[in-house]
Design a protein around this nucleic acid. Sequence first.
DNA 1: ATAATATATGCTTATTATAACATATGTCAG
DNA 2: CTGACATATGTTATAATAAGCATATATTAT
Lengths: 100, 100
Amino acid sequence: MSEKAYKIFFGTLNNKNRLKIINLLRKGTKCVHDISAELKFNQTTVSHNLKRLLHCGFVFVENKGKHRYYSLNKKTIKPLMGLIDRHMHHFCEKIAKGER
Amino acid sequence: MSEKAYKIFFGTLNNKNRLKIINLLRKGTKCVHDISAELKFNQTTVSHNLKRLLHCGFVFVENKGKHRYYSLNKKTIKPLMGLIDRHMHHFCEKIAKGER
DNA sequence: ATAATATATGCTTATTATAACATATGTCAG
DNA sequence: CTGACATATGTTATAATAAGCATATATTAT
């Protein structure tokens, strides 16, 4: 796997707001307006972040009238989150010590 | 899992040099000097990055005389890389279109 | 105790990424 | 066709991050 691919993958995931969007979408498909309202994010911020999530296949879109419904790529997200949970469970003491 | 935990996890992985270090360590345990020499990185850069990898449990250290040998936490790294490879395999067309 | 080698850490600068404004585009209702 | 709503995009100021210098600490040999 290329260096660039890793960068895209982790770079996309390494963002507070995008992670919040991902976690919101885990509950179900939502349109931009709903995401914006529920997370209290600016609409442009949501759109920009969805664009990036879309670009690397973490989410999918479907047009329905004037709305665009975004859904999660659960095939990737689910095992990914499970992996993190397992890792954190074993290394939480170290992690808990600080931010860095 | 906390927002902070995700940030630490992805933030640590989202770095060219740290990923190179990880990929180098996949081949086996190495000391700072070896990593520095093989990747042509400044020694301080290597130490700073190893510190961060160590802090979140991606690598382990063992002291041997004046050397410190770093090894990968394969329990996490192996499935993680596998996951990325699988994801990229399915979404490479989209990824290949650009950097962002 | 001193020199030599290996590694770590504090700090500053340069790079990169993010958020949000302003605005553009798209879709539907009337 | 116009207005209203939904979403997207270009741009930029700000904030987060990284790299490397200078230096500190640790270990070993003499």
